[in-house]
Design a protein around this nucleic acid. Structure first.
Lengths: 177, 177
DNA sequence: GGAATTCACTTAACATGTTAATCATCTCCC
DNA sequence: GGGAGATGATTAACATGTTAAGTGAATTCC
């Protein structure tokens, strides 16, 4: 089975004007892959501890975010914890069932729901936090505090760079409706 | 149950009227969150194009990886595409059903399956690649080629730093067995 | 040479990511 | 004040992440 078509992708090897497509980037070195692997390497450290406390990474993010405020609306919480609405909805249902959070309707708008962490939720946070801190400290020690700060800054800059980049979709499949 | 396991994580917090202590890092600035947000900012650019071609991000990763080899075993493919076995299993079933890949048993080991991309799969790749390259180029232009390379290097270094870090679990729930 | 173990992969079960649709308000405007 | 649209949240449907269990085939070891 010949992979002959692979060179259709790269026209002129020389001109760097628009397309510098070698068989494409090494792929394993693409930016999305690098970010994915780095994040996984980090999260792998935290997951076991969270799991021992009956929490997933996302549930932890939500509880963590709730400790920073007195109470907060669902949409704003989604933004803080960087979760999509549907995910948050499901998780809040679960956390409320476990009495780790409390939910009530907003005073002047029945559409909005206001969420806050419960005493039980706070206790859970306090039980998990020490271990998380130890792990975070170890990561910092290994990678280097300065480098870590530098990395975070670059990540923020990358995010900012792409802020207003409209999705330059190519095949506008849906034309009607 | 005292809520001061191991002293306060961060003493001397400027307490505002709210009785919520602000333990731990700003949270929104934690390393996992930074990595997650950065990756999402990047992937947001690619998803619409992939979607228009009927591919998810993971399906694309697999096809992309397959173009780099003639054929490959499933486990090795999982490593390449950075997917867990179960996810890969499901996706391969789907891609095989769409005739984008081909699968056969290994010659000397009936346990192993060998996968390769089909002609149809290659054609799909070729249809998607140009747009992906344009997007990647724009990301590079915005963020800066040098900074991009620097970032990737740091991400690799981070990964390497955490390579042999055993999960320092705290509550060893399972003690016997 | 066969039971026990390991290995490669797949299924299962549950939680989340992702997009679209639904539902109940709320706002605006005539 | 009532209907059209906007808004906040949830539900639906499908794909993947994640861990555990299952299945069949190769290896080990006695």
């Amino acid at each position: 089975m010949a992979r002959k078509n692979s060179n259709d992708i790269q026209p002129g090897q020389g001109d760097d004007a628009v397309a510098r497509r070698t068989p494409m980037r090494e792929f394993s070195r693409s930016l999305p892959m690098s970010l994915l692997r780095a994040r996984e390497a980090v999260m792998r450290q935290f997951r076991p501890s969270l799991r021992n406390h009956g929490l997933t990474e996302q549930q932890w993010r939500i509880l963590r975010a709730l400790t920073a405020v007195d109470e907060i609306e669902v949409t704003e919480l989604a933004r803080m914890a960087f979760l999509l609405g549907p995910s948050l909805s499901r998780i809040l249902r679960d956390l409320e069932g476990r009495a780790l959070i409390e939910r009530k309707a907003a005073e002047n708008d029945a559409r909005r729901a206001v969420v806050s962490i419960s005493a039980k939720g706070l206790k859970l946070i306090e039980a998990v936090a020490p271990t998380s801190e130890v792990i975070y400290a170890e990561i910092t020690r290994r990678f280097g505090a300065r480098k870590l700060a530098e990395l975070q800054e670059m990540l923020g800059a990358l995010e900012a760079s792409l802020a207003g980049m409209g999705s330059s979709d190519d095949a506008e499949v849906e034309a009607d409706e």
